[in-house]
Design a protein around this nucleic acid. Structure first.
Length: 572
RNA sequence: GGGCGUGUAGCUCAAUGGUUAGAGCAGGGCGCUCAUAACGCCUUGGUUGGGGGUUCGAGUCCCUCCGCGCCUACCA
């Protein structure tokens, strides 16, 4: 029994997330958390909404709500969707929580005390009509290079040239279109990552088991050009964690907040504190997950995220933790994912292109999505969602291979023996062979799951399901019943036990269907099959069960066509 | 431009430098009849993006060219 801390990248508060966001962090993290729990480990699985920054303020302005109200409402929406998908967070926090305010200010104070904060005066574009400083990409204008009239302040999308906002001809606010812009002097805090470069570099080099995708991104930032650059960690915004030096005011920084990427990773820690507060625990209860001097030395910490999040988790956040000089638990393994594309293109919130979490749950149960997304997780490269592939995979894997297995064995038993596990006969050589085959595959499955090899785990689980159909085909209880009813009873008893076994093994992928299978088998016994032979005797003769409803209804061609049309998005 | 990744069967993907490059789906055939027209068995598909090199041996390592994706530090 080990202790595992698991965090998923924080979904941004602005709007409903799409399936690509889901499969890039929260869903595989949930798979891993569920697996470790069922193996008997102590797990702390943390996620939260990332609520600060300009986009949240703009989204709130659009709906006319105060930004705090908007975030509270959207947090509720996202939490409900997370529940709908069966995401088993121990706590789903908010980066706007008082706990995160305090911790973020604490880290800033420690960093300042240790000399890792610099105050820098710089010039930024201020929009008088919007009443706010504008991030580079919120400034539009004509590209001095190619003449494109919708170039952004950071880069021209047309000619890909890197720009500075002051390069733009006829600059205007991308928010309001106002041209009433001026350059103002403003003071900001910078995290002196350059001073921590060697320590971060050594730390990255010690992670020899990390995927190349992860370490190469980190190394690029460390080694490119003049090396790791300092990073601004404050912004001129209203919504965010007010800049304070620990619990003291920070002279000269009044009215400013910390940059969202400074406070967001700290929320991993703060959300654990929120968990403690919400569950009547003490500070020591959450600190034993995070402080190496307070019990976290034996914790294994795993982070899940999309590849775009890697620099912040390999550089900025570690810089914050190292620079604090305090013994915080650092990440042990980063599992990063590529992107999911939709039918040959990108998911697009603005164009309504692709499937979003709320719509997904409207049209199909969560397990359909969980299974397809996880069994096609973008681990080695980007992967593509198409309705045809989705329909074929789900119908074949879930309805035909697993669902139909449950159906055929329960219905056969009901018609020949009634709705109790039948008595008679003894497991023989065929059953021993099945146990052997199952054991080999289950051990392989455990290995893939422990290694977070998501697609291989799914493939192995499916092969385990197939073994049940192979057994039934060769045992043929419908034939044996005619000549040797006792033997048929034994075969059916084994089949029913396989359903329970499959429910246990499949729960990390399809928790809702697994629950339905256990309920149908009339048992709450979900112990992991360390001993497969023993696991196949869990349901004894005479034990009552029920024939469940169809576990997975098939997706019809008509449904597929309708959904493809509905989610294709507006044409430009 | 620079960096990283990727390219294997119609599709989705495997393959510590080591037999004849393997699975699932789709396609074809046979079997079974308990089951959601489901299941099982057999089977057709490959010049591993192109070219060159190293090696006894290359999908794998090196060079080069081509395609695709991502990142490039103030979106988060």
């Amino acid at each position: 029994m080990a202790r595992h801390l698991i965090t998923s990248a924080l979904p941004y508060i602005n709007g409903i997330k799409h399936l690509g966001n889901l499969v890039g962090s929260q869903l595989p993290a949930d798979l891993y958390a569920r697996f470790l729990r069922t193996r008997g480990h102590e797990v702390m699985f943390i996620c939260a909404t990332d609520e600060h920054g300009t986009p949240a303020e703009l989204a709130a302005a659009k709906t006319g709500e105060p930004v705090a109200d908007y975030c509270a409402r959207m947090h509720g929406v996202q939490a409900e969707l997370a529940r709908g998908f069966g995401l088993s967070f121990d706590h789903y926090g908010r980066s706007s929580s008082p706990q995160n305010h305090a911790l973020t200010q604490h880290f800033a104070g420690r960093l300042a005390d240790n000399g890792y904060i610099a105050e820098v005066s710089e010039k930024q574009v201020y929009s008088v009509d919007d009443g706010r400083f504008l991030p580079d990409r919120y400034i539009e204008g004509t590209c001095p290079n190619c003449g494109y009239d919708k170039a952004r302040g950071d880069q021209c999308e047309n000619c890909t040239k890197q720009l500075d906002p002051t390069d733009l001809i006829d600059p205007r606010s991308a928010i309001s279109g106002s041209t009433n812009l001026e350059v103002r002097e403003t003071k900001h805090l910078y995290l002196r990552q350059s001073a921590l470069k060697d320590q971060i570099s050594d730390w990255i080099d010690s992670k020899t088991d990390w995927p190349i995708l992860t370490t190469s991104i980190a190394r690029k930032w460390l080694d490119d050009g003049e090396g790791l650059q300092d990073r601004g960690i404050t912004r001129d915004l209203h919504w965010g964690v007010p800049v304070r030096r620990g619990d003291q005011p920070w002279p000269g920084m009044e009215g400013k907040v910390f940059y969202v990427w400074f406070d967001a990773p700290i929320e991993y820690i703060a959300a654990t504190a929120e968990w403690a507060d919400a569950n009547g625990k003490t500070d020591a209860d959450w600190r034993r997950w995070w402080r190496r001097d307070e019990g976290a030395d034996d914790v294994t910490y795993t982070q899940f995220m999309g590849k775009d999040n890697v620099p912040f988790h390999t550089l900025s956040f570690p810089a914050t933790l190292i620079g604090s000089g305090e013994p915080w638990r650092m990440v042990d393994y980063i599992k990063s994912f590529n992107y999911l594309t939709y039918d040959g293109g990108q998911f697009s919130t603005s164009q309504g292109r692709g499937v979003f979490m709320d719509h997904a749950l409207e049209i199909l149960p969560a397990d359909y999505w969980r299974w397809w997304l996880l069994s096609h997780a973008p681990e080695s490269g980007d992967s593509e969602f198409t309705w045809e592939n989705f329909q074929q995979s789900v119908n074949k894997d879930l309805a035909d291979v697993l669902g139909n297995f449950v159906s055929r064995i329960t219905k056969f038993c009901r018609s020949k023996f009634g709705e109790t596990v039948p008595e008679g006969g003894q497991y023989g050589p065929e059953e021993a062979a099945l146990v052997e085959a199952l054991t080999a595959r289950i051990r392989a499955y455990e290995g893939f799951m422990a290694a977070m090899d998501v697609r291989k785990s799914a493939s192995e689980l499916r092969a385990i399901w197939v073994l049940g159909n192979e057994y039934l085909q060769s045992a043929a209880p419908w034939s044996t019943f005619k000549t040797d009813p006792e033997k048929a009873a034994m075969q059916v008893r084994l089949g029913l036990n396989l359903i329970r076994l499959y429910a246990v093994l499949s729960a990390p992928f399809i928790p809702f269907a697994s629950r339905a299978m256990l309920d149908a088998m009339g048992t709450g016994d979900d112990t992991w099959p360390d001993d497969v032979a023993a696991a196949l005797t869990a349901l004894p003769a005479g034990h009552a069960f029920t024939v469940p409803d169809v576990l997975f209804a098939k997706i019809t061609d008509e449904q597929r066509a309708e959904w493809a049309e509905r989610f294709k998005g507006v044409r430009q």
